[in-house]
């Protein structure tokens, strides 16, 4: 009854054009391939890492049009026309550098496997904040898992990044045990 539509040829493989760290790229990939695999197979991107492949750990977090998303949940067919950023492309971005310095100075990492994902989430959070969002930076890392640190260093780093006027006037005061509500 509704089969009067012409069914288009639907190949499993297609040419996918998108922007990666500011440069236009085209990749031939299966429509269902994950962005994570597309990035890693290029050999150029190692910061996005497979931790679960079901979008639940944040180790593969990248920016998609400025929003932090798990790249294992983005499929190739969804990419055309969009802009993907990874920490490889953020290494001169002032927000990323603030995040990097805060994470390093507070020793917010141990094995480091999850850390680029955290950095991407924090960069997205800082950008949102600049656009007027009042969202707590701690909410931006709610989807990132770290098994090494117990998040203590991350808490201190986020305190640093959340200080008024950071990075210019950061006072670096961490939350104390006694300041709980």
């Amino acid at each position: 009854m509704s089969d009067h539509y012409q069914v288009p040829e639907t190949p499993a493989q297609e040419n996918i054009s998108f922007e990666l760290n500011g440069e236009a790229v085209t990749r031939s990939a299966p429509s269902g391939e994950t962005l994570l695999d597309i990035l890693r197979e290029s050999g150029q991107i190692t910061s996005a890492r497979a931790g679960c492949r079901v979008g639940r750990c944040g180790a593969c977090q990248v920016l998609l049009d400025g929003r932090a998303v798990p790249s294992c949940l983005v499929m190739a067919w969804q990419l055309p026309g969009h802009h993907v950023e990874t920490v490889e492309g953020l290494n001169k971005d002032p927000d990323f550098l603030s995040v990097r310095d805060a994470l390093a100075s507070e020793s917010a990492l141990q094995c480091g496997y999850c850390t680029p994902g955290f950095a991407v989430s924090l960069v997205a959070g800082i950008r949102q904040r600049r656009q007027g969002s009042t969202v707590d930076l701690t909410e931006s890392v709610a989807g990132n898992l770290c098994r090494c640190t117990g998040y203590g260093g991350l808490r201190r780093a986020i305190d640093q990044l959340s200080a008024p006027g950071y990075p210019d006037e950061a006072d670096g005061q961490g939350a104390s045990l006694s300041e709980e509500q």
């Binding site: 509704s2 089969d3 009067h4 539509y5 069914v7 288009p8 639907t10 190949p11 499993a12 299966p30 429509s31 269902g32 391939e33 994950t34 499929m75 067919w77």
Partner: peptide, 22 residues
């Protein structure tokens, strides 16, 4: 398998329903 999935891009909601059924 994931690599062999074919993703149809219908032009309209009605066409989407048609593809889904067919």
């Amino acid at each position: 398998e994931r690599q062999a999935v074919r993703v149809m891009r219908p032009e309209s909601p009605r066409q989407a329903v048609s593809f889904a059924k067919r």
